[in-house]
Simulated scan of single mutants.
Amino acid sequence: MTDTLTMGQRLADLHATLTPAEQANLKLILGLSAGQLVPDKAPTSEQSRRAVSEALEILCPYDVADPRGLQYRGRPDFLTDELLASFIAEKDEVGKTAVPFDEHYLGCGGTVADRVAVSPELAALVASVVPKAEATGIASYLFYRDAGQGIIPHIDTDIFSLNVLMMLEHEIPDGVEEPSALYMHYPDGTEERLQLSPGEVVIFLAGTQAHSRTPIAEGERVTILTFGFMPEGAPLENYRR
């Protein structure tokens, strides 16, 4: 019977036999592997990329028709002009103390963002596209300020296994023909480029879907607000800081 299983199914079966700590380590290894395999376009990497992607999708904790790509894209009704202006004002304040983190600057929450992170309006939006997802209460402002900053292909940690990503600001200097963008990377090696406008929101299963942001150019600026969600009933210690 085992011989008929794919490598992705075998990895998922292995996950079921492990302790919670070991499961977390395996998920980390799979996530790192996905990030490394995405940019490798060699034919020899295709089988490995598909196996890792299949295992992650089998382990997806959410009941959705397709864990790949976006589950939602648009501007939700609760995101009024006034609320968007509040986020923009808050990101300016948070940005003063944002700290370098990987290839961007990180600012943790703020009064407005933290309130919305646990609001019924945001919960209802998420529930309408991904049932049984629960807010972690974690909101983060991400700032891309320095030329070359971006995020390489990766899988998010469990605290953002479901990511609600809101574009707040994208300053594009004259002469930049292809601005920085969010990318979804698929098991077959194809990619989807997503150029988001300020106020636009996307929801995707960041814990299973490989994604990245291409580097910003000189003079370009990108500011994003993200909200983390976890599976309903998951052990909080696994998802909260």
Rank of each mutant, 00 (worst) to 15 (best):
T19F: 07
P20Y: 08
P20D: 01
A21G: 15
A21N: 14
E22G: 12
Q23M: 06
A24W: 02
A24V: 12
N25Q: 03
N25W: 06
L26F: 03
L26N: 04
L26Q: 09
L26K: 01
K27C: 12
L28K: 01
L28H: 05
I29L: 13
I29S: 12
G31I: 13
L32R: 09
L32E: 04
S33F: 04
S33I: 09
S33L: 08
A34K: 07
V38S: 02
P39G: 13
D40T: 01
A42D: 09
A42V: 01
P43D: 00
T44R: 14
S45Y: 08
Q47N: 11
Q47W: 05
S48A: 12
S48P: 01
R49Y: 05
R49I: 04
R50N: 00
R50Y: 04
R50F: 02
A51I: 01
V52S: 02
S53K: 14
L56V: 10
L56I: 08
E57K: 07
I58A: 09
L59F: 15
L59G: 12
C60F: 12
C60Y: 12
P61W: 02
P61A: 05
P61R: 01
P61H: 08
P61I: 11
Y62R: 01
Y62H: 10
Y62W: 13
Y62C: 10
Y62I: 14
Y62S: 03
D66F: 05
D66T: 03
P67D: 01
